[in-house]
Amino acid sequence: MSGRPGAGVRMSGVRVLEAGPRALLVELASGEDAEAFHAELLRRRAAGELPSVREIVPGARTVLLDGVEDRTLAGRLRSWSVPPPARGSGEAVEIRVVYDGPDLADVAEAWAVAVDEVPRIHARTEFRVAFCGFAPGFGYLTGLPGHLSVPRRSTPRTRVPAGALALAGPYTGVYPRESPGGWQLIGRMVGPADLWDPAREPAALLGPGARVRFVPMGVCG
């Protein structure tokens, strides 16, 4: 995508797929385009320029519009002008972590670096929550370059503790609660209860679009 910030451009490669009689799945050419399209949907909804929809759910390369009453929306979505995502704006959420996960060595091997390089590379990356899923408040964070993708563990763990900082594919995530999981564990968040609190507004610390930085603490953290 190109174009000056704020000067929307018409995206190429936009497909609008029907997901049943009341939902549209907008498929974009890349994760960056999906991010920009999602931001534009939220902007238009806030401005009252979007017909009523019940849910706007970003995915890796898609945005799902569920509960769409106006069937003519599909045709208009294809021709939207969308400004590029606003980078570097707003405060980044800082997550304090200790990089002491059991899969550090495996990740170092996959990255072809020394074990103590993994925390350094990870902590200097600026992440962004691309989408949520798996559990309430679990964000799929992008930011690591493509060549640092890692496979899931061949055998998932039956128990991953709340706060586990983990990698899989291109994504980083922090488990909001204890659950089974197949991601590679590289550390743990200090105070994971902050990740998800349905009584708080916002309930999720890592909602879609949030910018995130991981701040390494000492091993005693």
Partner: peptide, 10 residues
């Protein structure tokens, strides 16, 4: 398939 939103009845 890259993860995407799912609807009721999918």
């Amino acid at each position: 398939l890259p993860s995407e939103g799912m609807v009721l009845g999918a």
